[in-house]
């Protein structure tokens, strides 16, 4: 068994474990380029009950770069698990016999924990319900550390949908373990849950809430943008009014510190104008690369 067994929630990890994963991700950088056989003979099952492009391909790419093999499904509707009404518990007790590690994305909260309860092999949560996306949080932390040199001491602005986005929930919980200032910029309908803000403040994070994205730019070392989803708004006019305010345009970049970076978990819709892509602040495609090495690190710590 590896150094890690399951990876279900950021809240199960200590700062030391997170730092260990981030250190190992750095060690994976050269292997990501020249490839490795360290997980030769190991099989990863990807069970994606919800659509995903980046997370699934990133996990698969990470496993293949380490010499392992991959199986799974990306459309739950055509599998027994989704289409025929099989319980998650039964799916897991079956798939664990095919693979050495299970990577799961599921729409229900707590699903990855149930998977871990029934599996004898390790389970990695690739996004469960609205609350947890721990590997995204880890790759975000790794991106910040790789691009800024450290995490402690930074001011980090989270912008957009802070209520429903599981990415920002996991990232916010991860940042409670670091000495950071946080600026939360969201329309009033999509503000971060008070319980998460309370957890952050309890942990000593200095939190400031603002209503406009402009107020989140000036002091930030990291601007973390998220997508505002149309389906969260009962009235389309409300959505249209809000989306304009949470859009980063080229002229907004003048408000940023010279060395501030912009991250985004992607996919984007129109919250990041394409004409900022060539700006030195724009780091979201490098963040995708960081995702592969972070997941290589996680798989190696579990299976290696």
């Amino acid at each position: 068994m590896g150094v890690l067994h399951n990876l279900i929630s950021i809240q199960d990890l200590t700062r030391d474990t997170i730092d260990m994963i981030l250190d190992h991700a750095r060690d994976m950088e050269p292997l990501a380029v020249k490839r490795s056989k360290v997980l030769d003979g190991k099989i990863m099952a990807c069970l994606f009950f919800e659509p995903s492009t980046r997370t699934r391909l990133s996990f698969e790419s990470a496993m293949l770069r380490l010499g392992g093999s991959v199986l799974g499904f990306a459309e739950a509707g055509v599998s027994s698990a989704g289409g025929k009404g099989e319980t998650l518990a039964d799916t897991i007790r079956t798939v664990e016999r095919y693979a050495d590690v299970i990577v799961i994305r599921h729409p229900l909260d707590g699903s990855a924990r149930v998977a871990a309860e029934f599996a004898t092999c390790p389970v990695v949560n690739a996004g469960s319900g609205a609350e947890e996306h721990p590997t995204q949080a880890l790759l975000d932390l790794y991106s910040i550390r790789r691009m800024k040199g450290c995490i402690d001491g930074l001011t980090i602005s989270l912008c957009g949908d802070l209520k429903f986005g599981r990415t920002v929930h996991s990232l916010a919980m991860a940042l409670t373990m670091y000495d950071v200032d946080m600026i939360l910029a969201a329309p009033k309908q999509l503000r971060m849950k008070p319980s998460i803000i309370a957890e952050m403040e309890k942990a000593g994070v200095r939190v400031r809430q603002v209503n406009h994205i402009e107020d989140a730019l000036q002091d930030a070392d990291v601007v973390y943008m998220t997508r505002i989803q149309k389906e969260r708004f009962p009235d389309i006019r409300e959505y249209n009014a809000v989306r304009g305010h949470f859009r980063l345009r080229r002229e907004d970049l003048e408000l940023l510190k010279k060395d501030a970076i912009i991250l985004h978990p992607l996919p984007r819709v129109d919250e990041l104008d394409p004409d900022i892509d060539d700006s030195p602040h724009a780091k979201y495609f490098e963040q995708v690369e960081a995702g592969v090495v972070t997941r290589m690190a996680i798989l190696d710590l579990i299976l290696g």
Binding site: G85, T87, L88, A89, H106, P107, L108, D109, G110, S111, R113, V114, E117, G129, A130
Partner: peptide, 14 residues
């Protein structure tokens, strides 16, 4: 009380 919690799925043996 979270209706999207997997513990509210009656067929899951949990």
């Amino acid at each position: 009380p979270n209706t999207r919690c997997i513990t509210n799925e009656p067929r899951e043996p949990i």
